[in-house]
């Protein structure tokens, strides 16, 4: 059956599509700030760190959203605490804390139920999205977009020039933890679509693709969320048509878009760079 017909016919596929497109959009939005702040590793860390929270929520029988946000935020506070109160560099502290949280999560999940749950949390299973999951994702998406809209100024200045931000009295720490909270929520929203392991790809790859195309942050955010949404749509098509893991197909589609832009971006592309350096060399040759 044709993908479009299937979408019209099957409700589960509609939910899968809506959920993954929303995930693509919000990952793109938050991803822009993550890459501009040089926090790609932090994105990877926080996404892994939600695992123990998810496991504990299942045990307590509450929505995994709450547990996940709590363990993500706690891990980011622990990372900050260790790097500020020791001579360790931030990436070392990140490496210690998120692997610990992830390991604890794996043990908690094995206590819990069958291993298929762990597999779905790690790699996502978008075709099994329940209506409640879709609404959680849409709710998180709306919240994240609203927060970014209202705190855009603060997010911009703390990313671009944190020294000036604190000089005029803005708490860069507060904005940092606000961003970490949103990062955790985006991870939670992405659990079923791409899974914990691959969330970081959806955060970084569409944002990086957009970064190679524009010099305006607002446009970068629109482009990144556009790329995220398109990757989600096309990825879901491949996942459905060829019965492949949805997380993996969505990520690979965004990688293909990145490679295309990396090569062909009019200003920052590899080919353009190559031509420019050839030109300069030939000009030097004439002189």
């Amino acid at each position: 059956m044709n993908f479009v017909d299937a979408i019209i016919q099957y409700e589960f596929l509609q939910k899968a599509l809506i959920t993954s497109v929303m995930v693509g959009i919000i990952c793109g939005v938050i991803g822009c700030f993550i890459i501009l702040r040089g926090m790609a590793l932090m994105g990877d860390a926080i996404s892994h760190a939600v695992l123990p929270g998810v496991a504990i929520s299942y045990m307590l029988g509450i929505n995994f959203f709450f547990g996940a946000v709590a363990s993500g935020v706690l891990t980011s506070i622990a990372i900050g605490f260790v790097s500020q109160n020791s001579r360790l560099k931030n990436d070392t502290s990140i490496g210690i804390m998120f692997t610990s949280a992830f390991a604890a999560g794996i043990i908690l999940i094995t206590f819990m139920k069958s291993s298929t749950d762990l597999y779905h949390i790690l790699f996502g299973n978008v075709l099994a999205v329940r209506p409640s999951d879709m609404w959680v994702t849409l709710g998180i998406g709306l919240l994240v977009i609203t927060v970014v809209y209202f705190f855009y100024k603060e997010l911009l200045v703390t990313s671009f020039d944190p020294t000036m931000a604190s000089a005029y009295g803005l708490s860069t720490k507060l904005i940092h933890y606000l961003l970490m909270t949103m990062l955790t929520m985006v991870t939670v929203a992405s659990l079923q679509t791409v899974g914990i392991v691959l969330v970081v790809a959806m955060l970084i790859t569409p944002a990086a693709t957009a970064y190679l195309l524009t010099d305006r942050l607002t446009l970068m955010i629109y482009l990144a969320s556009g790329f995220g949404a398109v990757a989600a749509f096309i990825g879901l098509y491949f996942s459905f048509t060829y019965n492949l893991s949805s997380g993996a197909t969505i990520v690979l589609v965004s990688t293909v878009m990145f490679i295309a832009v990396f090569l062909m971006s009019p200003k920052y592309g590899f080919i353009q760079r190559f031509i420019r350096s050839r030109k300069i060399r030939s000009l030097e040759g004439e002189m």
Partner: peptide, 17 residues
């Protein structure tokens, strides 16, 4: 107060005009 930081404290690749 206006504070102008050292030039090498800034990420000059930042997407801003």
């Amino acid at each position: 107060i206006a504070y102008v930081p050292q030039r090498n404290d800034i990420d000059w690749d930042f997407p801003i005009h």
